[in-house]
C-alpha cells in the first residue's frame, strides 16, 4: 500500500446530475479498498434526477474511518465533469494547495438559456480555477468521448485523467481491475480504451 500524501486524502468527484460522476466515485472507492486503503464515498445530491449539481466525497485513509463529507476547505483534489462545477466546489472545499482537474465542456443550466443568469466566460472561469488552486488541469474529455463514438464515455475518460494526473494513489491496473469486475466483452474493451485515452490526455496536459 502506497503511503498517502495526506491523511486523510480528500478527493471530490463532481459534475451535473446525469453525467455519471456517482459511478466514477464508486469505481474509485472500490479500487482504493482493493488496494487496502480505508475509503468512504459520500454522495451528495438533492431531489433532482438530472441537471442539478452532484458531488461525491471520497476520503482515503490508511486505516481510519472519517465522516462522509469533507469539511470546508479540506479537499486535496477536485475532479469535475463540468468546469463551472469545479469553481462551485473549489469555493466551498478548496484551499491554495488544492489540485483541480476538470473537463472543459460546459453544461448550461436553463437559467442561462432563459437569460436569467450568465455562464462565465472561459477566460474568467479557468483564470479563477488556476488562481485559487495549486494546479489546474483542463482537458476536453467530452470531445475525446465523442471521438470514441459516445459521450457516455466522458466519465471513464476522466477516470483515466485522474490516474494520469497522478493525484490519487491509483494506477491503471487498479482502475482496469474494477472496470473488469463490472463490464465484460466489447463494453469492457471500450471502457478500457476510454480509460487509456484519459491517461494519455493527462500526460499531454502535464
Amino acid at each position: 500500500m502506497k503511503e498517502l500524501s495526506r491523511e486523510p486524502l480528500n478527493l471530490i468527484i463532481g459534475g451535473v446530475g446525469g453525467q455519471g460522476n456517482v459511478l466514477m466515485a464508486q469505481l474509485v472507492g472500490q479500487a482504493l479498498v482493493q488496494r487496502g486503503y480505508t475509503a468512504s464515498v459520500g454522495d451528495t445530491y438533492g431531489v433532482s434526477q438530472r441537471g442539478g449539481p452532484v458531488a461525491s466525497h471520497v476520503r482515503v485513509s490508511h486505516d481510519r474511518s472519517y465522516g462522509p463529507l469533507i469539511p470546508a476547505g479540506q479537499a486535496d483534489v477536485i475532479l469535475t465533469l463540468e468546469p463551472a462545477e469545479a469553481l462551485r466546489l473549489l469555493s466551498e472545499l478548496g484551499n491554495p494547495s488544492t489540485v483541480v482537474v476538470t473537463n472543459s465542456r460546459p453544461v448550461y443550466p436553463p437559467d442561462v438559456s432563459s437569460g436569467r443568469a450568465t455562464y462565465p466566460a472561459t477566460k474568467d472561469l479557468f483564470g479563477a480555477l488556476k488562481r485559487y488552486s495549486s494546479r489546474c488541469m483542463v482537458v476536453d474529455a467530452s470531445a475525446a468521448a465523442l471521438a470514441m463514438g459516445d459521450p457516455i464515455f466522458t466519465n471513464i475518460v476522466m477516470l483515466g485523467v485522474l490516474v494520469g494526473a497522478d493525484v490519487a494513489p491509483l494506477e491503471r491496473k487498479d482502475m482496469a481491475d474494477v472496470l473488469a469486475d463490472r463490464f465484460k466483452g466489447t463494453v469492457l474493451e471500450r471502457n478500457l480504451a476510454a480509460l487509456d485515452r484519459g491517461i494519455a490526455l493527462a500526460r499531454e496536459a502535464r
Partner: peptide, 14 residues
C-alpha cells in the same frame, strides 16, 4: 475565491 464563485450560475431543480 468567494467573489470569483459568484460567476457560477445556479442550477435550479427541474
Amino acid at each position: 475565491l468567494g467573489e470569483a464563485a459568484k460567476m457560477v450560475p445556479p442550477r435550479a431543480i427541474n
